[in-house]
Design a protein around this nucleic acid. Structure first.
Lengths: 254, 254
DNA sequence: GGCCTACTGTGTATGGCGTTCATAGTTTTA
DNA sequence: TAAAACTATGAACGCCATACACAGTAGGCC
């Protein structure tokens, strides 16, 4: 609880701990403004469209002025990744499983709304105020389950990871494999055709069988909502089983 | 089964479908050589160290010569991501659950051995020969379970996603939050201290409680093997439950 | 055998990027 | 009013991916 230990500068700024007394001219900007501008660009043009110059001109300063606030572009991206995370859903006394499902889905939707997050996120432990708020809420919702704190955190990591990877898949599907658009690859069906074209049944027996059996012919395509729920239920079933084990066995040690 | 439909050029190359007859001078290189060189650099210096010029000089040509083989740097990265995936473990008639665990762990280890994969992977459906071989093997291992092909693929996606995100977490932990190394952030314990420093217990009640309860004080730290197994078992428990449901209920329709 | 032609590697050039640094300007403190 | 602390600027640097025109090479064809 030692108060005010020095943090990495970007964290200080993200948590709004700026040293108060200033002598020179008032800063014209702040981190939030810059971050918001960068996010607007990323939403509109993708992450590739985000350059220091572009962000700067959008907030009306020269490119190099940003370095009074961010230290590096990396820092800016970090700040963006935290800032997109609006407040997590509130658990209104709902059962843990319902909230966990809601929470995971909300994360997925968040990523889908800002796909560039996928290119930014390092999947590292959260350090920003908003992402930590999400974590807090899930821990709270798991309070009555009998899991210990470490387990709760592990559950949170696992669910977050799932939200991310599923969103990535759904995004790739939604884009219609845009990278390979030249060959007219536009959905699961095309993916299936492509695999059929390319796979040697001797070397890929199980996969070829599945492809020719028509796994990828479903019109809904890929990574649709049903697929999301499938994986989610898989994991929540696992959590439920763990909880059942904990409560039936009682607790030994700690 | 229409044979030899044209594919995106990079895929043609990755699958070794080059048009045979050539007229000019023998190419001095091939995609595999270039990819291998790029991987060596990435392993040694990280992905940031991989530049077209660097790769080119390592294989002994001018920078622009690479464009006879790759079309763009993006293409090269794609090729790298597939090429690091060595052959998947062979299921020697082992139970599906054992193989799935082995398979997932192998993927995780693979990423940890080449952390730059995390920056490259788009988490998009696999198109390269090696990654598809991994998929094939898991499908094969799930053959006797009664799951349908779509479910098997979903399980594979979920497990792959878990391997990736867990590896990312483990990598971040192993690096000791190197990005913030300035503040001496070197492990779970430091992470806990940092959170304690920064969190307002009113706004983050559950998380603060966990932190002060010492969740992050374990010396093993973060994302160790136990944590990996925890999440893995969660998911495999879920799969097992699904399989049990399938086999007990019998199958209706298709 | 000799020419054509398709193909490969090179050199040069371009435009964009993140970032550094010295400088000029502005506001508070003394 | 003078000094000090801080802010924004503009020019410059080095790096990078990539486009393009060119030169060299080797098989196909007469």
């Amino acid at each position: 609880m030692a108060p005010e230990r020095p943090l990495p500068p970007m964290l200080e700024r993200m948590w709004g701990r700026e040293r108060a007394p200033r002598r020179g001219p008032r800063p014209r900007l702040d981190l939030a403004t810059i971050t918001a501008a960068a996010i607007e660009i990323a939403d509109a043009e993708g992450l590739a469209g985000v350059s220091m110059g572009g962000v700067a001109s959008r907030v009306g300063v020269a490119a190099t002025a940003l370095y009074r606030y961010v230290g590096s572009k990396e820092d800016l991206l970090t700040s963006m990744a935290d800032a997109v995370a609006l407040d997590p859903p509130e658990p209104g006394g709902m059962p843990w499983r319902d909230y966990a499902a809601l929470w995971t889905r909300a994360q997925r939707d968040l990523v889908l709304a800002h796909p560039w997050v996928l290119e930014v996120t390092k999947y590292a432990p959260p350090l920003g105020p908003r992402r930590l708020l999400w974590l807090d809420r899930l821990l709270a919702a798991l309070a009555g389950t009998g899991l210990d704190d470490g387990e709760k955190i592990n559950v949170a990591s696992t669910l977050t990871g799932y939200a991310l990877t599923d969103a990535a898949l759904a995004h790739a599907a939604g884009m219609g494999f845009e990278e390979h658009a030249g060959a007219g690859l536009e959905g699961a069906a095309d993916y299936g055709e492509l695999l059929a074209e390319v796979l040697d049944p001797e070397r890929y027996p199980a996969l070829s069988a599945a492809v020719h059996g028509g796994v990828f012919r479903g019109a809904e395509g890929w990574a649709d909502d049903a697929d999301f729920r499938f994986g989610l239920d898989l994991m929540l079933d696992g959590v439920e089983q763990l909880i059942a084990r904990r409560t039936s066995k009682g607790r030994f040690g700690g």
